[in-house]
Design a protein around this nucleic acid. Structure first.
Lengths: 122, 122
DNA sequence: CGGTATCCCCCGGGATACTG
DNA sequence: CAGTATCCCGGGGGATACCG
């Protein structure tokens, strides 16, 4: 089954592949992870997702919104206030991102070691 | 705990973040997924990971090798033959990518619908 | 066959400024 | 505060050619 999935996505099987390509980029995933189960304002995300530029943030938020992963609520106040929240699909994706994050920390040392080994091979 | 992870990675907490940025790109993930639990040659990957260029493939394979996610075995034959296999860390990552793939197919219809809704809002 | 190197173009994405 | 628009540069990444 997982082999089936792999085949479906590795090959340009249309929509699934397109979505995967949209989602599988660090900014989108970091944003999803940062929103988590809470509700975040634009500026909160801007400061919490370290290193992201204003442009990349809006761009990726639009992307996520377009794919129905986040809801965007505009409060008609002044100054304006916009809240972002994960939808149910977004939450489901977040679970997998959590797994990736866990993986990263779990294998930190192994990776570090692999890197040093790789350095002086040649 | 997952909130902790989120914080650690969203902020530029050095190494973990760097690794995440390396890994969280579509080509690397698709390659991992494509190798799966088997052993693949360069050309196999080239044809199976649809749309990837020669350059991107080698580049990402080096990246994965450097981080200890794949092993690269060169057979000193002629013509040469190189086999790529996932290491244990690589397999572990693959499990999470499987989850992302499953997510994609699971929510295909929802996403499709979200997109059409997004289209005629303005 | 697999890898490296070179060329070169295009666009990702940062910085800045302006609207509501 | 949030978003859009404009400018502009660097490098991502494709195409091609050449080694082992």
């Amino acid at each position: 089954m997982s082999k089936q999935l792999s085949g479906d996505l590795a090959r340009a099987d249309s929509l699934a592949r397109e979505i995967f390509s949209d989602i599988a980029n660090k900014w989108a995933l970091l944003i999803v992870e940062t929103i988590g189960d809470s509700t975040k304002r634009f500026t909160e995300l801007k400061t919490e997702v370290d290193g992201i530029s204003h442009k990349m943030l809006t761009q990726n938020l639009r992307l996520l919104e377009r794919n129905g992963l986040v809801t965007r609520v505009v409060h008609p106040t002044v100054p304006p206030r916009v809240d972002y929240t994960l939808t149910e699909p977004g939450q489901a994706l977040r679970a997998t991102v959590d797994a990736m994050c866990a993986w990263t920390t779990r294998y930190l040392s192994e990776i570090e070691e692999a890197r040093s080994r790789f350095g002086h091979s040649s």
